[in-house]
Design a protein around this nucleic acid. Structure first.
Lengths: 165, 165
DNA sequence: GCATTGTGGATAAATTCTATCCATGATTGA
DNA sequence: TCAATCATGGATAGAATTTATCCACAATGC
């Protein structure tokens, strides 16, 4: 089971947007350029992020994207849900109600409560989501600031200045 | 991001194997029949389960599958790993090392530690896996015994008797 | 009004998932 | 000893999803 590539792309790009000066926007082509991503495909992801309110858009000259709310209020979970939806990872197709021993009509009362296997699987998903919800884009920025060399920091600052010109 | 259908199928089937009398095996066609699953595709999953040691096989007449170890020592995590592999769900393709501001040679020291985004995502995966590891097939059996109607229990016992004949 | 930006959706190749089939190997029972 | 019965390994294939592009159009600012 894999997360789509858009998740990695989007987290990195939202972190970049989090580093923008207040009120400024960065156009999509620049976002793509920063990590050498495919513009057209990144655009697809950003439309989902925009729909979910994680980014705000400005059309026209000097337009582009900026964070849709402050970086400490955008979690990794928000990004995941925006891109991949809010459905459970574990799909319970109710096979317990199938086969020669099943009688859905007769057993309807016990089938109205969710399958215990699904409940266990979903509980694990809840734990996963809880952890994702704990980490915001602000946290990512903070951790990245510690992790990235000062040389790269300088190059980034210069690149951003040029990109916003 | 979805789990494959084999995860649901396999958990249910391993629970059925956990209900077998000691030393008995159930052939794959019967396992498939119990939940109306596709035999040929279920076989694919069971080959992965067999490879992982979660089921043991008996060829020849009266052959089939049985649990590879006691049901309290087979967790939902074991089943997931057997079927979908042990790789991370979040794929870090190191896009941080790409783009105009990146200089992988120069920044090699900071790139030798994992990307902080990946670390956060993987931490969430660890929480998910921990929960999955807590639940065994024995637990599933116990919970199912509470959940299933006594009528269905009887039908199951009779079906098993016939299936093992 | 035009250039610059995002949006919505159609299209398509590649990959993965779902599923089957066939030849073969292992075991058991007559 | 051989046939029947079971699993195994791998090739094959259609459907669905992922990755990716392109085009027409909408919104904005100069």
């Amino acid at each position: 089971m894999k997360l789509g590539s858009g998740v990695e792309w989007s987290i990195h790009c939202l972190a970049l947007l989090g580093a923008l000066p207040p009120g400024r926007s960065l156009r999509l082509e620049k976002l793509a350029e920063f990590h050498n991503l495919k513009v057209a495909y990144l655009r697809k992801h950003f439309q989902a992020l925009s729909k979910a309110g994680l980014v705000a858009t400005v059309t026209g000259p000097q337009g582009g994207y900026r964070l849709g709310r402050s970086s400490d209020k955008i979690s990794l979970l928000d990004i995941y849900i925006a891109l991949e939806g809010d459905d459970h990872c574990f799909r319970c197709t109710e096979i317990r109600q199938d086969g020669p021993c099943a009688n859905p009509a007769l057993d309807k009362p016990s089938y109205s409560i969710p399958c215990n296997i699904a409940v266990s699987m979903w509980k694990a998903e809840d734990a996963w989501r809880k952890e994702l919800a704990k980490v915001s884009i602000a946290d990512v920025l903070g951790a990245t600031a510690k992790q990235v060399s000062s040389e790269k920091m300088e190059r980034m600052a210069q690149w951003l200045t040029e990109a916003l010109a």
